[in-house]
């Protein structure tokens, strides 16, 4: 299945672009996805998950526009065509 990924600010710099699409096996969770991203991109290593495998504090991860902490956290399941957005703390203006 394909998942669309959107990165903001420092994460965009680490990935080199804002939007990418990646193919994964079915049954993927947010935790699996974030771990895979940390492995693929050097600049994301240690930036998304803490030592216990939870999403790092102040980081916001949205599945189709909804904060995953209010779904099932890292256990939130993903389906083909889902969009996942990854934000560091926002610096507004």
């Amino acid at each position: 299945m394909d998942v669309d990924l959107r990165f903001f600010a420092t994460f965009r710099e680490a990935v080199g672009q804002k939007n990418i699409t990646r193919a994964f096996d079915d049954g993927l969770t947010i935790g699996d996805l974030l771990a895979a991203l940390e492995s693929e991109f050097d600049g994301l290593e240690g930036e998304l998950l803490d030592d216990t495998g939870d999403i790092r504090p102040q980081l916001s991860v949205l599945k189709n526009g909804r904060e995953v902490l209010h779904i099932d956290g890292t256990a939130t399941e993903l389906d083909d065509g889902d969009t996942v957005s990854v934000f560091p703390p926002v610096a507004g203006g």
């Binding site: 903001f8 420092t10 926002v90 203006g93």
Partner: peptide, 20 residues
């Protein structure tokens, strides 16, 4: 985190945040 965001994007990315 805020400083790194600021260095990467200035304030301009707020338009993309608000849209997202």
């Amino acid at each position: 985190s805020t400083g790194r965001w600021h260095a990467a994007s200035g304030t301009l990315e707020s338009v993309e945040f608000a849209d997202a």
